[in-house]
């Protein structure tokens, strides 16, 4: 499937990637090639096959309900771009 710049802009927006029209045009070609390429899957004989999400047919292991994590806020926030009063700061969110 061939994608146009409008579609590239739409998925860039969903992906939260800044993209101007020139960049979108550049990506459109490569993305079209990739979507064409993966269309080979259409020829696969997958009638009645269960999707495989995971290489091992195992079940989720359950962790005991216990607190194991100490408070290391200072360590974690030392690498944050913007914090104040223990809060991470972002531009004002309008609700």
């Amino acid at each position: 499937m061939s994608v146009d710049t409008e579609h590239v802009q739409r998925i860039a927006e969903l992906s939260r990637l800044a993209m101007d029209d020139d960049q979108a045009r550049e990506f459109a070609g490569g993305l079209s090639d990739i979507f064409d390429f993966v269309e080979q899957l259409d020829g696969a004989d997958i009638e009645g096959v269960e999707p495989m999400a995971h290489p091992m047919d195992a079940a989720q292991r359950l962790r005991p309900d216990a607190v194991t994590e100490p408070d290391r806020r200072d360590d974690y926030q030392a690498i944050a771009p913007a914090v104040e009063g223990g809060l991470y700061l972002v531009p004002r969110v309008i609700e």
Partner: peptide, 14 residues
């Protein structure tokens, strides 16, 4: 998200 107390910013408590 906490909106009080910051100018033009929102504070995030996780």
């Amino acid at each position: 998200s906490l909106h009080e107390g910051f100018e033009a910013m929102t504070g995030i408590d996780l």
